[in-house]
Design a protein around this nucleic acid. Sequence first.
DNA 1: GATGAATGAGTATTCATTCAT
DNA 2: GATGAATGAATACTCATTCAT
Lengths: 235, 235, 235, 235
Amino acid sequence: MTSEEAVGEPAADDEVPAAGPPRPLRRDAERNRQRILEAAAEVFNERGLEVSLDDVARHAGVGVGTVYRRFPSKEDLVEALFVARIESVAALAEQAGQAADPWSGLVSFMTEAAEMLAGDVGLRQLLMFATYGRDGVAYARRRNLPLVARLVKRAQDSGQLRLDLQPTDIPFIIFMLTDSTQFAREASPEIWRRYLTMLLDGLRPERVGITPFPVPALLPEQMEMTMRHRTTRHR
Amino acid sequence: MTSEEAVGEPAADDEVPAAGPPRPLRRDAERNRQRILEAAAEVFNERGLEVSLDDVARHAGVGVGTVYRRFPSKEDLVEALFVARIESVAALAEQAGQAADPWSGLVSFMTEAAEMLAGDVGLRQLLMFATYGRDGVAYARRRNLPLVARLVKRAQDSGQLRLDLQPTDIPFIIFMLTDSTQFAREASPEIWRRYLTMLLDGLRPERVGITPFPVPALLPEQMEMTMRHRTTRHR
Amino acid sequence: MTSEEAVGEPAADDEVPAAGPPRPLRRDAERNRQRILEAAAEVFNERGLEVSLDDVARHAGVGVGTVYRRFPSKEDLVEALFVARIESVAALAEQAGQAADPWSGLVSFMTEAAEMLAGDVGLRQLLMFATYGRDGVAYARRRNLPLVARLVKRAQDSGQLRLDLQPTDIPFIIFMLTDSTQFAREASPEIWRRYLTMLLDGLRPERVGITPFPVPALLPEQMEMTMRHRTTRHR
Amino acid sequence: MTSEEAVGEPAADDEVPAAGPPRPLRRDAERNRQRILEAAAEVFNERGLEVSLDDVARHAGVGVGTVYRRFPSKEDLVEALFVARIESVAALAEQAGQAADPWSGLVSFMTEAAEMLAGDVGLRQLLMFATYGRDGVAYARRRNLPLVARLVKRAQDSGQLRLDLQPTDIPFIIFMLTDSTQFAREASPEIWRRYLTMLLDGLRPERVGITPFPVPALLPEQMEMTMRHRTTRHR
DNA sequence: GATGAATGAGTATTCATTCAT
DNA sequence: GATGAATGAATACTCATTCAT
């Protein structure tokens, strides 16, 4: 990365990244950053992404000003949160890639990812609706997708998964599944497992009468575009 | 009990106060009412139910006072919009009940309902999250469910649908499917058809290796409770 | 009614008073006017002068437009109401003037006037705070004052009332007394009688140790000015 | 019980959350807080408690957000203003309790309290109608009444005040008196002194022909109830 | 004349974001 | 760097008043 590329940085003053990886924060700053992320995770999960940054700050035990110093806008905070979480999802995908049986590797990934999203309103809201957050979302997804692709590939190679399923279908399916939990949070937070079962049955290849998909899956590039389109500006 | 008396049924026609249908609006008023509804439909579809009534009014080319004259609160406007739409869904269910083949009846209903919801952010948001709207929401759902139940029953009786599928699963499935379209609005607004296919394949009964559902479906009563939990949100 | 008279139509300078008393309203118009006044009296008494004209109109069974045709503004309506009521007060004063005993004439007037005001939030609010209403208020008071003055004079002439009491003191006293009832509406709507007693004891002339008033009473002219100053404009 | 322990009285110090006094505001904040209070006092006095907080803010030269930062709602602002003032009234009552002559102690209190209320529309409106403000209102009154009761008792014990006067009569009288000033603000802001004289003459015991009160005074409990009836008015 | 529809400025309150301390 | 104070545009809703039907 040349210094020219690095110029793409926003305000130019503040935090001038000395050409190279962004200099690490001072230790107390880093601690605050973590606190804020934790507090945000907590309140976003409890009350959705609509909570005010004042609340986040209060919860984190810092001033709002500090939140803004670390995260130039609410969108950025939300995105940072997502990026942090997405790592876990990536980790899940990686682990699942080690599974002896390709099919059950894929299934565990889907199950575990769904578990995460079902239990974390904020995260899901962010991933799905992306009313907050920015390009980092697309980026993080890009990072995830190859891992998922590998899972899919292995399952298909082993003859356990219908061949017309695309890697991009997987995030969709996970979102869909956990959507049902949004709807039935109180009544049946695990309801998504029911629909996962249904779907999995529809993913097997060996069946007689398999119905071809009427619509192609999204291309990886399209996934990114998708994100950008939905980012509704917040005041 | 004459058919006139039957009209006294509480939830059924609260809009008819006492004697005869509410006198029709003056022509100009009716025109504006329509304009407002259209404008609301449009902006709600574009930007979700969060848009302000000022925006709706501006879009309709009327003053906000006019909006409030016709719809005493935002909730009422939203509900009016919803109630109108929900009738169509019910109509779809009724029509589907006439289909010669029970399975394809069910499939057309799901397809058509998904088409509606996929194309109408506001409607879907309302049905799913019901953060706006009032009793009409619960009522409309109540009205829909029995029709859906009939479709399910018929398909199961004809041996075309797995027996452990419950009527309450259907709305979930429709919500789930259209959820995917929320996500990929620009890139592929019809993507849900892909997942419908998958799901349908998982709904057939005659297959080898059918996997039993790990979680029960929601009971009809639970569907209503669900609603109540989310309804009380706005000042 | 000739066709010429009928011409009193909007285009032609509305209701031109043909030099003389304002032509009486058509009978139906008059009926509406009365209805509106009655309705206004009722709701103003129940809920204070803040009720909306829409409410008044609804109560009267007419459209708001009709209210505005008769009373160009809320202020005017309120004033009309006051003028109507003030007649009753004047009547009380006249009757009291007939009493055999001058002192008890004065006392009954004060008592009866206080009874009226204590029982009519709207009327009192209007007279006292005059946040609504206009010159008619001053006018009506002017009309009342001479009658009161006579009561005062008689009582003083008969040696039953301290000589330094001025006629303008009487309205003040009545307002003051009924003020207490505003305060204790629920707990003791008749509490004012208590303070009337006190005051009357302080009005007798024959006592030893009578304390001269430290401040002069208002002059009749000042009473009018008073009114004008308080008329806060309403949107 | 030491005077320090006495502070533990429930209503007495709810404003002190737990440990020590609430940390003092930053200097700029304090300055603005004062500005807001002054501005509020001013406009409330000029135009009553109905003025909008936008107006208050404008008058104070700050944004409305600042007003809301210091006073979470209009009610709170009003109460803050009131609580500050009410202390002065209490202080007056306390001082008056020190007077060598019980009668003149009572008279000075009434006079000084009336002076305060006569010059402060907002304060009076709040005390009288309590359409704004919260528990602080009830509390402050509760705090005042015993002090007043003492004044009354002393005057009665010294034979200078009629025995059937109750402590609750005093606030009524003060309200009544200043009511007259509301009415004659411009013409004669001191007019209430005239009626105070009258009333005082009616309060002496030794007179011939003293008229017993026809209605009992309010009980202290009733005073509070009174308040409650009017408090719940604002959104 | 009567009706009630339309208007829009006004109300209390919230919250992302900026800026003085 | 951290803090929390200040800002003001935005939101849902009301109501006196005007105007088309």
